[in-house]
Write a protein that binds this DNA or RNA. Structure first.
Lengths: 117, 117
DNA sequence: ACCTTTGTTTCGAAATTAGAAACGTTCTGG
DNA sequence: CCAGAACGTTTCTAATTTCGAAACAAAGGT
């Protein structure tokens, strides 16, 4: 199967076809966000990508790569390495605030703790 | 089981404990991002939340709610409704650029198409 | 030709998600 | 207090997804 979520189509969890819902479906699949994140600094070969992703299973790697390629977020360059497309590169930019947020999150958990009132 | 990813701990897909990796694990679970998104405008009861999420299965809803609560992103208010915590509300803010991105993504797919050169 | 590294596919096992059903509680109206 | 309806939650089985290892082809180096 190869159901890559795309704007304008019904996706898992939403029938509206809104772009954000397609994005949330696509990015909600395991490792999808991570792959984009790891490619943000430049192209990587499949094996290298798997290594930086702490050894994600190859079957999932290729499935995600296929989805992300269909979604035009990732492409294979002339060297055979995977890299972000222009619009794919914008994802990691759009995700940057999330990186900052995560640090604040960590601090807030240290400070108050999840249970501490 | 109840393995809620938190900063400082080993999470699925990363052994470093970096906050972003914990976030990526937590948010990479089905419906997690969507729940935060749907709560961005205010509290919702469980049943209402399930409705706006296009009928996500209740078993997953409560599992996510549990994880997000443990992660201190969601809390249950005095009315019994679920709402974002302060740090949880910052997630949807941090996610806003992603909403804008998704619209550009949709346009870029319409314009060139995934396959079109 | 041989060994090594990389890219990719396949397959059974393990984990996650889906979906429906069920149960207790709360609220509304007698 | 008693029914009925809506809500919150838990539980169980089936389907889907992900894991993890193994295998094979292609490319490079010696």
């Amino acid at each position: 199967m190869s159901t890559t979520p795309t704007p304008g189509h019904e996706v898992r969890g939403s029938t509206t076809g809104r772009p954000l819902m397609a994005a949330l479906d696509l990015f909600g699949r395991r490792w999808a966000l991570r792959i984009l994140w790891e490619l943000r600094h430049g192209p990587l070969g499949a094996r290298a990508l798997r290594t930086v992703c702490d050894g994600m299973s190859s079957s999932v790697l290729y499935q995600r790569l296929d989805e992300l390629t269909t979604a035009d977020l990732v492409t294979k360059n002339d060297d055979g390495d995977y890299e972000l497309t222009p619009i794919g590169a914008e994802v990691s930019t759009a995700l940057e605030p999330l990186g900052n947020w995560a640090d604040r999150w960590a601090q807030s958990l240290e400070a108050g703790g999840p249970q501490a009132g």
